Simulated assay, not measured.
Amino acid sequence: MQAIAIAAGGAFGALMRYWVSTATYTWLGRGFPWGTLMVNVLGSFAMGVLYVLLLDRLTSGPELRAFLLIGFLGAFTTFSTFSIETFNLIEDAQLGRALLNAGGSVIVCIAAAWLGVVLGRQI
């Protein structure tokens, strides 16, 4: 049953990643990988909140945790996309943008996860 929950969450997460990143690129343009950064920050924040809620606060079943944490957020966040976009920036001799993307993604996503945990603990 957990495998089905993961697959369903993954399908939904992949669609949400597409919709959020497309909307972000429409809003901010494609000169920087804003869409990938956006989904990774939102996904990190959601992971922080849901981690606390599902593991500490609520009595959720393993299927719900699998659906949300492994399936949905696993497909929603985009580390492989982040990696290739950063590589492409390096290859295009845009080292400053590549460093900004790599450093910003790591720092901002960890901060978003921390904020999510803080919020989750207050709920």
Rank of each mutant, 00 (worst) to 15 (best):
Q2W: 02
Q2H: 06
A3I: 10
A3Q: 03
I4R: 06
I4L: 09
I4Q: 11
A5M: 01
A5Q: 01
A7M: 12
A7Q: 12
A8H: 06
A8E: 03
G9T: 01
G10K: 05
G10N: 03
A11K: 08
A11Y: 08
G13A: 08
A14I: 01
L15M: 10
W19C: 08
V20G: 02
S21P: 04
T22C: 01
A23D: 02
T24K: 03
Y25F: 10
Y25E: 09
T26I: 07
T26K: 10
T26F: 06
W27P: 08
L28F: 07
L28S: 00
G29Y: 00
R30F: 11
G31D: 04
G31Y: 03
F32T: 07
P33F: 03
W34E: 02
G35M: 05
G35C: 11
T36H: 04
T36M: 04
L37D: 03
M38E: 07
M38N: 07
V39T: 08
N40R: 04
G43K: 06
S44W: 10
A46T: 15
A46K: 14
A46F: 14
M47K: 09
G48T: 14
G48Y: 11
V49Q: 06
V49D: 05
V52R: 02
L54P: 14
D56S: 08
R57T: 09
E63W: 02
E63M: 05
A66G: 01
F67S: 08
I70P: 14
I70V: 15
F72T: 03
F72H: 07
L73A: 02
L73M: 06
G74Y: 07
G74T: 09
T77M: 03
F79W: 09
S83A: 12
E85D: 08
T86L: 09
T86C: 10
T86D: 02
F87D: 00
F87Y: 04
N88Y: 04
L89K: 00
L89E: 00
I90Y: 12
I90H: 01
E91C: 00
D92I: 06
A93H: 10
G96Y: 14
G96S: 14
R97D: 14
R97L: 15
R97W: 12
A102C: 13
A102R: 08
G103D: 05
S105C: 12
S105H: 14
S105I: 15
S105Y: 13
S105Q: 15
S105A: 13
V106H: 01
I107V: 15
I107A: 15
V108S: 11
C109L: 08
C109M: 09
C109F: 05
I110F: 11
I110D: 02
A111V: 08
A112N: 12
W114L: 13
G116K: 14
G116Q: 13
G116F: 07
G116V: 13
V117H: 10
V117S: 12
V118N: 01
V118A: 00
L119V: 15
R121P: 00
R121I: 05
Q122F: 06
Q122M: 02
I123E: 06
I123V: 14
